[in-house]
Design a protein around this nucleic acid. Structure first.
Lengths: 345, 345
DNA sequence: CGCCCGTTTGACAACGATGTCATCACTAGT
DNA sequence: ACTAGTGATGACATCGTTGTCAAACGGGCG
């Protein structure tokens, strides 16, 4: 009795075209033709090859083929986002995957945690694997380092944040417009003491949102009750708003310019029992916002559209489109649920 | 003046070791040695090579190297989950990535939407790319088709759901135990009319949860007020619970055995204004559960642990560990927030 | 001074596939 | 019957890299 270990070299090694060819009694090039559906193979030969491939559970080595193939496409995309464990990134990722899967393209994903160092490492790791294109929510202030790769013809598309230092496609939300919309909504309810809670100033979208907010207030001849920036997590946002609520002359309305900041703000308002008399509008939707009481009014982004359009740009470039680089802006949607419609007292 | 197009073939082609070698005035093998940090290169030669590589923005081709290298590792992992756009999958994914990134391993992710056909296609797509290992939340009832690959030595680890038809590692939640815990909690509050809302019977974890729930009730000598299965989305769950609430003798407590079902149940309770007098315990945590009123009591899973442990199993196998396949069970945690502590009227 | 040995280096084959091209067997046209 | 054309097939070089091996060189030792 011959006991075969799990790492048995016989069954352990992967079959190659050569072995399939041998078993089918044909040349290796004929196997290649059958596997790739090339013409000029008799049906009987093709069947013999397919039988042999099936018997050996043969899977072609995409990378070996790619090495020799003229188009040099790995049918692989690299996606770089804030964190795959984050609803916004998840929605972008899913949209990219949906666009890719139909074309037989697989997607690498990497989380950057807004760390520029990690971005450079992750990009390098993907390029060494010869991805056909990159889609990234950049964490760096300047992407000049991508210039050589771009010149080589690798499509690079920015999502959510615009590129700086290089000329390439970008798909972004209308951050300033959305923030202005939020401000106008609160102004329309009669609010004149509106507080702004924002993310790190180093993030371009955060700056855009503040700009849109302040512009809208200025157009109405109103000055912001307060502007708090550099709130990078839920708890920092909560503490900041608690302080504002405890101070004399607290705001009658709050605009929270990011996801986690909105959640922190919700906690602060409940903590101080002010959630029924202080208006709140958030930027970017949050889960279960409709089940809260009052429901959370938000300016929603459309991450699925961002992801889909970015993937479409990459594929268009791969298909040879070399029109000048585009900047696609995706609109935002105000979703009225209650918290934004609380009037000033 | 020579105008260079963006797709210029000169700058458009990627530099190879040969070109680096030529520029540095050394043999190609010496470049290989420097790039891979092999010993026996004089510092001056190494510097010349690094300078040349830098000047050309050289990136080694991992796949070409892998073709020749003896270990045949692509430093790539395939992850198959329900959907990358889903908090549970996102947490698993992030944990896998965190374990992988330190080892220089990149992660392919694919969404299956519980479609067996997609699972087979996605697995094939990953194997053609020669991933070093697979981590999967299976969507198929039987995974015998993975047997040849497993015999070839590719580590395959199941997460969340157990394998069937093959013998391999699995990391799962204590589904029956967690469901029992939820039932016991409701029984302890004095409930005797408890409704069960569950996912598709075809999903193994759904069956486990029902089993745990019914066992706990049986131990207490109580029969379920109702058992509703095959609720695969939020809306189906909402409708089902609305029906139960409208019927004579509605339940005094509800156990919702999955994420989206819990959200559907929350909607139903609010819709009928019964959220303050009907107890609810959910399986798997939901975002913002603590901000609702009452807060949502849940039996939380630990997807980060599932992902981390699965990745560790894969790497252990790759490192040569060939102990018998393990089944690792990760416990659940009851998080008390209010909704589960409402007493029967 | 000659031998041995370790260090540094490059020539060459090989990994698994595909592109090119030559060969062979037929069929059709004259 | 002979030529040209077409379809089916395989030999061979090649993609970018690494493993193997041998050559060249210099230093230490008897």
């Amino acid at each position: 009795m011959t006991s075969l270990s799990a790492r048995d070299p016989g069954s352990g090694s992967r079959p190659t075209m050569r072995q399939v060819a041998e078993l089918a009694g044909v040349g290796i090039k004929t196997v290649s033709r059958v596997i790739n559906g090339e013409p000029n193979v008799t049906p009987e030969t093709a069947q013999r090859v397919l039988d042999a491939a099936g018997a050996l559970d043969y899977q072609p080595d995409l990378h070996a083929g790619n090495l020799r193939r003229s188009d040099r496409r790995t049918r692989t995309l690299g996606l770089l986002v804030g964190s795959v464990d984050n609803p916004f990134s998840g929605a972008v990722h899913r949209a990219v995957e949906d666009a890719a899967v139909g074309r037989g393209v697989a997607v690498f994903a990497s989380s950057l945690d807004d760390d520029p160092q990690r971005e450079r490492e992750a990009v390098a790791a993907f390029l060494r694997r010869r991805v056909d294109g990159l889609i990234l929510v950049t964490a760096t202030a300047d992407q000049t380092y991508l210039e050589p790769e771009l010149r080589r013809g690798t499509p690079i598309v920015f999502v959510d944040r615009e590129p700086s230092g290089i000329e390439t496609d970008a798909v972004v939300s209308d951050n300033a417009g959305g923030a202005a919309r939020a401000a106008e909504h609160l102004l329309a309810q009669g609010h004149r003491r509106i507080a702004y809670l924002g993310d790190l100033r180093s993030i371009q979208t955060a700056r855009e949102r503040l700009r849109g907010f302040l512009d809208a207030l200025a157009r109405a001849g109103v000055t912001a009750a307060s502007v708090t920036e550099d709130l990078h997590d839920q708890d920092a946002a909560r503490e900041a708003l608690v302080r504002l609520l405890d101070a004399p002359d607290p705001p009658t309305a709050v605009f929270s310019a990011q996801n986690l900041i909105t959640i922190g703000a919700l906690h602060a308002l409940r903590e101080r029992g002010r959630h029924r008399d202080t208006a709140l509008v958030g930027f970017d939707d949050v889960a279960l916002a409709d089940l809260l009481d009052p429901g959370v009014t938000v300016v929603a982004q459309h991450p699925e559209d961002l992801g889909r359009l970015a993937a479409e740009r990459v594929f268009a470039r791969l298909d040879g489109n070399d029109s000048p680089s585009q900047r696609i802006v995706v609109g935002t949607t105000l979703i009225v649920r209650g918290s934004g419609e609380i009037p000033p007292k």
